[in-house]
């Protein structure tokens, strides 16, 4: 379990980090390292340069930003899981964070590192999609804001440009909506075989709107549009039928633990459970 040779730099500012990132085509950012370092030890990843973001001040926070909650990219899963601000304003992200890995992973892993890695079975993407979150990225040319729906683009890939790094994630307050994250854990890895995040707004006993993000099923997390549309203006009795469309049109992945067909089935089951739970959850 010995990685290949690499150079290591620990910049003290985002600008320095960006400059380093541009200095090498084979640079990787270290932001927790709970996916990257195991991959390096197995020599599945052999970056020439490792840029440690851990020494840059001011990248770890959870704070109010108008109608949103802003999180620094280096905020750990544990901090997100335990944030009182998120608990009162936007609890879905905390729910997802609580189900990531184990205590050690949650204490070291960061939200920026996780979403930049874009593991198809990671938990955050489902929640960020359902929340219509925004990802703030900075590069040499400045800062831009990427909607979550435009961020995850494929297997371990995002729309981040080379030379860009994530500085902040912004999630809206979900006051008035019920939220839930329902997850079927892989027994070995703890990743989501299927994870469904739901944000549901009710009006006079019917579903006013539903936002559903699903991870684990396809090569990247997606919004379950067909199910969402089928839920609108429906009573509780129609949830199961609507949620059966959770993986409609999705090209599902399969492996020796769960086939594509089974994952699509689980997506429907966990979609229903997440929506029901969200409806029952206090807004």
């Amino acid at each position: 379990m010995i990685p290949a040779n690499f150079d290591y730099q620990a910049p003290s500012s985002v600008e320095q980090a960006i400059a380093l990132l541009e200095s090498s085509h084979e640079a990787k950012l270290l932001a927790g390292g709970h996916s990257l370092l195991p991959a390096m030890k197995l020599r599945l990843a052999e970056p020439a340069l490792l840029i440690d973001l851990g020494r840059i001040p001011g990248l770890s926070y959870v704070r109010e930003a108008g109608a949103q909650v802003a999180l620094g990219a280096m905020t750990t899963h544990a901090a997100i899981a335990e944030s009182p601000l998120l608990a009162s304003r936007s609890p879905l992200l905390s729910r997802a964070a609580r189900q990531i890995g184990d205590v050690q992973v949650r204490n070291r892993g960061t939200i920026g590192g996780s979403i930049a890695h874009a593991d198809p079975a990671a938990d955050y993407p489902a929640a960020l999609l359902a929340l219509d979150a925004e990802i703030v990225a900075r590069g040499r040319k400045g800062e831009r804001t990427i909607p979550a729906r435009e961020f995850f683009s494929g297997l371990f890939s995002t729309t981040l440009l080379s030379g860009e790094l994530i500085t902040e994630i912004r999630v809206p307050a979900t006051t008035g909506a019920g939220t839930s994250y329902a997850k079927f854990h892989h027994p070995a890895s703890g990743f989501a075989v299927v994870g469904v995040a739901a944000v549901v707004k009710m009006a006079s006993g019917k579903i006013q709107s539903a936002a559903i993000g699903i991870t684990g099923v396809a090569d990247h997390a997606y919004r379950a549009g067909a199910a969402e549309r089928a839920l609108v203006n429906q009573p509780a009795s129609a949830i199961a039928g609507a949620c059966s469309r959770a993986a409609e049109g999705v090209d599902a992945l399969g492996d020796h633990f769960a086939s594509a067909e089974y994952r699509k089935h689980l997506a429907a089951v966990y979609c229903r459970r997440a929506v029901q739970e969200a409806m029952a959850a206090k807004a």
């Binding site: 027994p187 070995a188 890895s189 020796h256």
Partner: peptide, 16 residues
Amino acid sequence: LVTGTLMDYSMPKAAQ
């Protein structure tokens, strides 16, 4: 060998 690491080979955990 498909289950070559503990990410694939399921060792039991206390919670299970």
